[in-house]
Design a protein around this nucleic acid. Structure first.
Lengths: 254, 254
DNA sequence: TTCGGTTGTCTAGTGATATAGACAAATCGA
DNA sequence: TCGATTTGTCTATATCACTAGACAACCGAA
């Protein structure tokens, strides 16, 4: 047997908690324990350390630990029994390949099939970052599109798309009509294009991002910066896409 | 001029804040405003909405807004002047292509060159998830390696690696000696291998993850699940890598 | 200079967060 | 059945987070 019924020892010498940083201690403990469960360190049926142990480990009072456990229990992650202890109830799919994958599969096709609503379009100076990405001068003009993609009424991602002008001037009208960047590109003489680079990072959502994605502020977003080139190797598009991290899982195609 | 000196209007009807969820209101406001700055919505020199406006927008007292602004000011993100208002000081590189990229460039090469310390190795049953990834039965045995990768003494990533047994039994000894999975594979008759699939997600760090990566609990980690196949298309390795999101930016090669 | 707009500071009060200690109640194994 | 272990509940206290209101200090423009 590989997983005997011995006690689980999640962490030996508990990591320090942030104090007076606007994050309640009980919340940090609850988040951490939830991570231990969803990441598979603690498996269904495993016994958590005792309240006294956890309190000692985190350097807090037992009441503070109890509050964290109460939150997890109310969400069905653990079950507590007097005299016995606290046990992991079920592993609530840390990475549900099923439901989350659907939309990301689409998005992973280099964004080609993505259908999005156009939330805004404007012409402006490229600026340093976009100019570098597109191989332009910072004062060159670009067309910026802002789009949002939803599935079943739930916003999944939002994107900013920068295109060189004058080559793609007026492309927003094609996009609005066709709902697809690929088709809009076709109207502007770009039959095919490929992804030149992709960069992935993650951070808490900004206020306006949380609003657009209908997220609670502070939730995690995946940020994907990419640059596309046409068949001749010319850079035609820079994109920054934001995904609600708990609504999608990105599938990178080789 | 594309960016006139008009007032910035980050959000119209402020998103609702979480109340009594262990996240202080001032912290949520500070995080959100920071995101507005680092994401580029608010640019250096831009004037933030007045304290009274922000208070109304978030439905909090002005003192609460002031606390959030004080945090941002103490970090040099904004500067406040009596009688004038609060202004964005500088955009502190939301996505520093420079310092963050170095290590991720290495990791993006399918983990081939990654040098890691072996933190543990054990044989166990595959279990449902790993079995599916490797094309085994859940009761088949696998070798699990746990590694950690650092740069200049700072932990950057940690990984769990699953390998089918008996084919790769004892591979941990080669790994420990050679410091490279590629070289260890070579010792076991795998001259070349390629990445079959890659999945990217993000979430707050679990307790033990925060400890291994020397992170404050609750910070964001990037989770990359991948499967590798040998030259014959046989699945030889499943990996789950965790990156401290604020220390790396993943570069996906086409 | 005046005045509207904005930030700085103060007092006071309420509820949430966290600590400390004590004891009851349930579980489980000796 | 006994006793050690563990969770459940209670009281009390201190600090932090947030609200409410008021007024001073400062800036910029009319």
């Amino acid at each position: 047997m590989t997983a005997p019924k011995t006690q689980a020892l999640p962490t030996e010498a508990g990591p320090a908690l942030q104090r007076n940083e606007g994050l309640a201690a009980w919340r940090q403990i609850a988040d951490g324990l939830e991570g231990d469960i969803t990441s598979g360190l603690l498996r269904p049926g495993d016994k958590l350390a005792t309240e006294a142990d956890l309190a000692a480990r985190f350097g807090v009072n037992r009441h503070t630990v109890r509050r964290a456990l109460a939150v997890l229990a109310s969400r069905g992650l653990v079950r507590t029994t007097q005299g016995r202890g606290t046990f992991v109830e079920a592993n609530p799919i840390a990475y549900p390949i099923g439901p989350k994958t659907r939309f990301s599969e689409v998005m992973s096709r280099a964004g080609r099939e993505a259908w999005g609503e156009l939330m805004g379009a404007a012409e402006a100076e490229a600026g340093e970052r976009i100019a570098e990405a597109l191989g332009l001068a910072p004062e060159d003009r670009v067309l910026e599109l802002r789009t949002r993609h939803s599935a079943d009424g739930t916003p999944i991602s939002m994107a900013q798309i920068w295109l060189p002008v004058p080559r793609f001037a007026g492309l927003e009208r094609s996009y609005r009509r066709l709902g697809s960047l690929t088709k809009a590109f076709a109207k502007h003489g770009v039959a095919d294009y490929t992804r030149l680079s992709t960069r992935v990072s993650a951070r808490p959502a900004a206020l306006h991002e949380a609003q657009t994605l209908e997220l609670v502020p502070g939730r995690v977003v995946l940020v994907i910066d990419s640059v596309n080139v046409d068949a001749d190797g010319r850079r035609i598009q820079a994109t920054r896409s934001l995904f609600a991290a708990d609504r999608v899982e990105l599938v990178i195609e080789p």
